[in-house]
Design a protein around this nucleic acid. Sequence first.
DNA 1: CGGCAGTTTGAGCACGATCAAGCACAGTGG
DNA 2: CCACTGTGCTTGATCGTGCTCAAACTGCCG
Lengths: 225, 225
Amino acid sequence: MNPDSPDIQQLKDGYLLAALSHSEFEDVMAHASVRTLAPGEGVFDQGDLCTHFFFVLAGIVKLGRIAPSGEEKVMDLVRPRHYFAEAAMFLGGRYPVYACALEATRLVALDNAHFLRLLRGNGDLCIRLLSTLSQRMHGLVNEIDNLTLHSGAERLIGYLLEQLPEGAVPASVWLNVPKHVIASRLGIQPETLSRILAKLRAERLIDVHEGMIVLNDVAALRRFS
Amino acid sequence: MNPDSPDIQQLKDGYLLAALSHSEFEDVMAHASVRTLAPGEGVFDQGDLCTHFFFVLAGIVKLGRIAPSGEEKVMDLVRPRHYFAEAAMFLGGRYPVYACALEATRLVALDNAHFLRLLRGNGDLCIRLLSTLSQRMHGLVNEIDNLTLHSGAERLIGYLLEQLPEGAVPASVWLNVPKHVIASRLGIQPETLSRILAKLRAERLIDVHEGMIVLNDVAALRRFS
DNA sequence: CGGCAGTTTGAGCACGATCAAGCACAGTGG
DNA sequence: CCACTGTGCTTGATCGTGCTCAAACTGCCG
């Protein structure tokens, strides 16, 4: 792997690995590899032995869970510059979710065993990882009170506002993923999502063109959630 | 604080601090204190500056969240031998939940700043804490697919089976907390909880006496969830 | 052109929330 | 001793959100 590629620069600049010395970073790179995935291609299955964690360079990765009953739930959609499966490293062996690419995707796979060894010797890196996991936990806690306290419409609005890039004019969100995936991510059925979108469109709060959602009145939407 | 008390032994035997040397443990104890709480007394409020994390020696602590809209949700009920608020240490300042005792409670308060200093020098302790947080995250993920995939009745049954002490005959759970707290913990209304209990009782799956719930047919209940 | 996946729309239904009333029990004060 | 009050729990009636089943519509690819 070329250490000067923009990919690697992206990884190096991210929060987690910024604590590393030059030689430590080289060391991590020596045990990392870049994977290129076609749309729909899997990264790992739920229950697989977990050997790596990942950083997304480009594309979108879906993290999903299949309940014993067969029902499926999208847990997260991971976009570029984010890590995933880094908590599974400590969970004792198997991935609790499956991961697959939703579109053409490039990611870095980092070796768990090697990274764990590095962690032992680097308190700063440890603290950063602890901080990362804490933030992720906080996100999950928010998710839980979203699910219990808010309606489907409120969750959708909250999600859209989260995805909204800073200072985009007009304020708009590019979904990039099939709507039924968004629906599962929000814990609702595709039909319900469709109805909510129709209702918001009727109230002139949003416009929908292809996969693009334009938020006409961000202030009003914010008041909603 | 007497280092030979059974309280301290309990703390020392727990998973998290088992990695410490004798002198390190003494060091932690030097910055820890035992607090005794009356029923209903608060430990900290949502939004308080976070300075300590805690280990429950006896009693029950309720972790709750108040949404901006004023709605309230019980996030967790912490029982003896468990930690809480150890993730907030890395979250940058303020507790995302409030904590209060539901009955007479005794807990150990551990100093964040001091513990962080200790973490930097002890890779093993770091890894243990990472592992603890990962498990907690996994619990939250389970919680989420409970909320999205299962009905109120299934969540209640799941909760009861979780609380069921090993090898208790007859299989029974002592709630120890008002039912409206359980309801909030499960994300349902008190009335709904009451109805579910009535239905399960009608089907002879459980019996309810005071705060005691007897599970008549654990196998059948397990099949439910 | 026909098949197929994703999406939309419609109709009916179920779960759980809300509003409301009733019951049991404890504490308080006349 | 008995009203009076407050709290926690239960039960009933009603209503709304969102799920299910079903049908129609879209764009896409063979």
